[in-house]
Design a protein around this nucleic acid. Structure first.
Ligand SMILES: [Zn+2]
Ligand SMILES: [Zn+2]
Ligand SMILES: [Zn+2]
Ligand SMILES: [Zn+2]
Lengths: 149, 149
DNA sequence: GCTTGCTCCTACAGTGACTGTAGATGGCAT
DNA sequence: ATGCCATCTACAGTCACTGTAGGAGCAAGC
């Protein structure tokens, strides 16, 4: 395929969508972006629809959706006559996840603040931050597990 | 080395510290936990000090410190005569990071709520959630980048 | 003594969502 | 023709683990 007016190189598609060149190729490898036709010199030739799709992916990723969810949302958006209940469910699940993460981080913030406030600025041997880390019994809330943050 | 009373197998150390067996070995491979002596049958034999160290690591991880920071905190705690300024700095940086993450997630939550509220429950073609994802211009705040969440 | 069943061993691959690197071409401008 | 950036493929690295395969150790029950 020879380059047409209106085609984008991968660099142009990257700039137009705000997705990095390497990430565009990565999305293709993950099946989120269809493999475009190539030029005679084997370069990818993107159309506007690819750029639109990249912007969709970017926005969804910025909102924290996992690539798997992005893939589902993309395949749903390709079938406009279906019910949007599945779309809604994914968005609500993401909202709930965001809420959980915030609660988690608020609790960490409180405990970190308590720890930091006890530090009197002396030696490590006297430092209550180290002590707090050593002694789990000092902490008010239970920790659900290693922080995914 | 033959097992002594007071020694822990890796499984016992794991239960006593709340760190999984595989994760204990992983921490050893990362240099966070010193390699313990072995039994005649090549099993790791931990002392109470190892269990204490594991509990320290676990608590620091629960507070979201990266393993590299945990390693620094551990090496600082091994030198009790030094100033605790470095400890304080790491804790404050972690606190700041938690604050940033919360702010980020609050913004995502607001945008997700707006998106979800516009969904009227019709078809995908009419769904404003998909539309919001497609059209970046509809969103109020700038996104700093893909969400690390 | 023998089998069952749990724990433990090493070594390596996989996760998610990319990022970085190496070495080889493509293609445009001077 | 020369320089230089963009692009190509393929693979390793990131982080903090988790999971798997294929053995070996060890206590208890028979
Ligand atoms: Zn201190
Ligand atoms: Zn705590
Ligand atoms: Zn909808
Ligand atoms: Zn937005």
């Amino acid at each position: 395929m020879s380059p047409q007016p209106g085609d984008f190189t991968i660099g142009e598609a990257a700039r137009a969508s705000g997705v990095k060149v390497t990430t565009v190729r990565f999305y293709e490898s993950r099946g989120l972006l269809p493999a475009p036709p190539r030029s005679e010199g084997n370069r990818r030739l993107y159309a506007q629809s690819h750029v639109d799709r990249l912007r969709f992916i970017r926005h969804a990723r910025e909102l924290g959706f996992a690539l798997e969810d992005v893939a589902t949302l993309l395949s749903l958006s390709d079938e406009p006559d279906q019910s949007c209940a599945a779309v809604d469910a994914i968005a609500r699940a993401q909202r709930a996840e965001v809420t959980r993460r915030i609660a988690r981080l608020e609790a960490l913030g409180v405990e970190l603040d308590r720890m930091i406030a006890t530090c009197a600025g002396g030696t490590v041997g006297e430092c209550r931050v180290i002590e707090s880390l050593s002694d789990h019994a000092h902490c008010a809330a239970d920790h659900p597990g290693p922080a995914p943050m």
